[in-house]
Design a binder for these strands. Structure first.
Lengths: 329, 329
DNA sequence: ATGTGAGAGTAGCACGTGCCAGTGGCACGT
DNA sequence: ACGTGCCACTGGCACGTGCTACTCTCACAT
């Protein structure tokens, strides 16, 4: 910055004013300063700004780049945070990058708050972290600490799907679980309750929040005697794995079996998957998470809140009317 | 840091020495300093370190979180850079985050070099950037500027696949292109040359580097009279889209048609895709890219290099012997 | 003549850290 | 008694920026 100032024979402060669009410089000077900055390839130093500034307006995000829905959430967070004048410091977990290490890294970056994503998978804990920095969980539970929490209303989503399938005439509706992943137990229980509430018999198959989990569950279903007429999976990835495996084995979807997912992640919209599912709006979830963490920055001792975002039913071609019962002699 | 020092009644510098593991402090003091830092929840401020340090040991990465193979590369880069004592600043492109904006952001973060990923998709330019910071392209061309470039040897990968299919008895081998994406033309031409070199007739179908592109190409193939006995796609995503579409339409893979991809991204290994493909080792590519960018930091005027990583054939269940010709009367 | 106010620009400190140049004490050899 | 060297530790400056307080000039009204 000093180079730019010297190059024009003005003071460094004047350059600072111009580049931050503050009043106190004539139009002519503004023009010359901008031109000189461009010419010299000057870029303001974020470290120095951060060091000087009283606040950083930075938030950390802990997530996994391999989870498509987490990526959607991060992109929504990036856009929304930018609108609010905050920037995000990304903390991707991965091999060799443990939660503990990434968090230490983020804390060294002057973050004012932390958004922890755990839509699917992952099993780390946040013990003691809220004492160091305001934290909000987005998408699923990772700790038993009292932490602000934004997630999808699983019960509501399950109800929408069961309702949809029942309206199509289905009664034998199976459910593939998410194993011991986050939200898995909650969704499984919601399914069982919803089925019983309608006088139907729950049929739970163990699975996981992955394509492999769905594929394995499909294998289990196929080795049993009769297939159910509809299957719900704990998330879209499992549903996609299940659907593709069924199709490969000659089962027609939706003529023989209807399949439903959960999340409306990008995989659900693929033309050859085209999955009936429930949609969580990433922008809405992101906005709620930012509301929560910014509120906690203002009022560190506010009571813990739990927001449940209401999902929306998305009907695609993987679900259809129950197949007619075949009468065997 | 001063708080920690005051808390123990020592100087700030001593705390600094201890936390950086430098000599000049007794073991007893080390223990007490670490305990006090832990107790007060102190984390060294990266901004201040960066500001003070003569070098930043930071590299920027420009990429897209939605491309699975780019995510694999970024994870490999993260691990390898850490081993070399560098840290990465992630610059994810996305809606509302243009290449220009992200680059400006990275340049403000004191990066010493920039790795630009473009494995698939994306079509931005790096005009003039190399003058500001050392740049290396990883995975594909984004500019016509003379820039260090690390990518896969497309011709070699194509040759491996054609060879594999020919050994299985295939002669009518179609190729689904990557549209106008990076590397698309190069791979298509390599395919055509390889086919002609073996006395076979190239059969090129327009596609794209996406599932949708592969699905569309499958539609085109199905409306033509006779299917080829094998189809190669420009990347795994297109191959997955094609394969799933074919299966849905009753075509058996590999009995009726063999399918091959390109990349060995995570989608290729899914149990119900199980795609024959060529593998690019992300760790090898990442290491070469880091070699290139670090070399250019040391010698800004070194001649531009182009590294081609040799891929490896991965045979899975999507490819098999040519189906016997059916004699029709 | 003198105050008033605004516009354009400048001076200096502070942010948290790393590095260089010290300072004091202690043991040892002459 | 005195230098020499080592160990444990401390003082002060610099990094690039933002903020507050200040100066200077010019126009205009009193």
């Amino acid at each position: 910055m000093k180079d730019v100032a010297d190059h024009l024979g003005v003071s460094r402060q004047l350059v600072s004013l111009v580049l931050r669009d503050l009043p106190g410089a004539s139009d002519e000077t503004r023009r010359r300063v901008r031109a000189a900055a461009e010419e010299l390839g000057y870029h303001p130093d974020a470290s120095a700004r951060l060091l000087r500034g009283r606040r950083s307006f930075r938030l950390g995000v802990l997530f996994t780049m391999h989870e498509p829905f987490e990526v959607d959430l991060v992109e929504a967070l990036l856009a929304d945070a930018a609108d609010r004048g905050y920037s995000l410091v990304l903390g991707p977990l991965g091999p060799g990058r443990t939660q503990q290490g990434v968090i230490a890294d983020l804390l060294g970056q002057r973050i004012e708050g932390l958004v922890v994503l755990a839509a699917e998978g992952g099993s780390a804990t946040l013990a003691g972290l809220p004492a160091q920095v305001p934290v909000v969980q987005l998408g699923g539970p990772r700790s038993t600490d009292p932490v602000d929490d934004v997630r999808v209303d699983s019960a509501c989503g399950i109800r929408l799907l069961v309702e949809h399938l029942v309206e199509l005439g289905h009664e034998r509706i199976a459910y593939v679980t998410g194993g011991d992943g986050p939200n898995a137990a909650e969704r499984r229980d919601a399914y069982a309750a919803e089925m019983r509430g309608r006088g139907l018999v729950p049929d739970v198959v163990d699975g996981a929040f992955t394509e492999q989990g769905g594929a394995d569950a499909a294998g289990i279903l196929l080795t049993r005697g009769a297939l159910p007429t509809a299957v719900m999976a704990a998330n879209d990835r499992a549903a996609a794995g299940m659907l593709s495996t069924l199709v490969r084995r000659g089962v027609r979807v939706p003529e023989d079996v209807s399949v439903a997912g959960f999340d409306d992640s990008s995989v659900a919209a693929l033309p050859y998957i085209d999955l009936t599912t429930v949609r969580h709006e990433p922008r809405a979830l992101a906005a709620q998470a930012l509301d929560a963490v910014l509120r906690r920055i203002d009022e560190p001792d506010a009571p813990v809140v739990t927001d449940r975002d209401v999902p929306e039913l998305i009907v695609r071609s993987s679900s259809g009317p129950r197949r007619p019962d075949v009468t065997r002699c």
